[in-house]
Write a protein that binds this DNA or RNA. Structure first.
Length: 270
DNA sequence: AAGTAAACCAACCGCGATTCA
DNA sequence: GTGAATCGCGGTTGGTTTACT
């Protein structure tokens, strides 16, 4: 009855992803697209469960991801949406192209919560704090701010949002954005070094990494990318590109950027 | 310079919803 | 219609980095 069992958890690897694993997953998904996650690790030659692959891809390897701190505008959007939707991170993320729910959730917990409290706003209810602002940890038990856990008004209002639908979500794929720091480079198996496995974003860029010559990269890394490029949609960049090539050799960085976009675009992202 | 605390973030876990045989 | 597998989401944990003493 039912479907076949998920991943037999025996012998499956856990913990941080290595550069080699990243590379395997990326190249598999680039050439095959996203199909059924359960089959992905097997077909890609990974000792991971499908769930882990999906998470790694959506939170880290997807080429349309932005990285780096959220801008002021993005933070404001997050705060506004959180007030309406509560902790529905995936819904919130759908309003911020290139950002993942995990990223937003982390940013909320580490930055925005504190900011709001400093401003005397309860991050749960989005209303002025009832008690004295957080500087006074009068009662030793636990962090004071955490414990005024009441159901967010947001949860209630969320239903009206869903019902009314006045907050229109859009798919991140509709507005793909790239930054040079976000690019995942194709590379061959022989050069990836498992040692370089680190959970840091930088490590992952270099993850495919061993293959990338820093000198080769220097021209683009040092370039100041015009703001308009940051905001240019992938389709626009593709439209602007002179030829459909996925070559990695380039003469000038701007053209290289277009080609990177093409590399991204030449596959179907489901 | 060394030790400790705080901050950050990738990844895991568990649950509910959905899909499928 | 039912039960099992899969998917997606939110909460939490734990390792790493950075700041402070």
């Amino acid at each position: 009855m039912g479907r076949q069992p998920c991943c037999d958890k025996v012998g499956l690897k856990k913990g941080p992803w290595t550069a080699e694993e990243d590379q395997k997953l990326v190249s598999f998904l680039l050439s095959n697209g996203q199909c059924c996650w359960r089959a992905v690790p097997k077909l890609a030659g990974l000792l991971r469960c499908g769930k882990s692959c999906r998470l790694r891809w959506t939170n880290y390897l997807r080429p349309d991801l932005k990285r780096g701190l959220l801008s002021e505008a993005e933070e404001k959007t997050v705060i506004d949406l959180h007030e309406q939707l509560g902790n529905r991170w995936s819904k919130i993320a759908s309003h911020l192209p290139g950002r993942t729910d995990n990223e937003i959730k982390n940013h909320w917990n580490t930055h925005i919560k504190k900011k709001l409290r400093k401003m005397g706003i309860d991050p749960v209810t989005h209303k002025p704090l009832r008690h004295a602002p957080p500087q006074a940890p009068a009662n030793g038990a636990g962090s004071p701010e955490e414990e005024v856990e009441e159901k967010p008004a947001a949860v209630a209002s969320a239903t009206t949002i869903d019902g009314g639908g006045h907050v229109e979500a859009f798919c991140t794929d509709e507005v793909p954005m790239l930054h040079i720091d976000d690019i995942i480079f194709p590379c061959d198996d022989t050069t990836a070094s498992p040692e370089s496995s680190s959970s840091s974003p930088a490590a992952s860029v270099s993850s495919c990494g061993g293959a990338i010559d820093e000198e080769w990269l220097a021209p683009i890394m040092d370039l100041e990318w015009p703001e308009s490029m940051y905001l240019m949609s992938l389709d626009d960049m593709v439209a602007a590109a002179p030829t459909a090539t996925t070559s990695w050799e380039f003469e000038d960085p701007f053209n290289a950027y277009q080609r990177i976009a093409l590399f991204d675009h030449h596959e179907t992202w489901a």
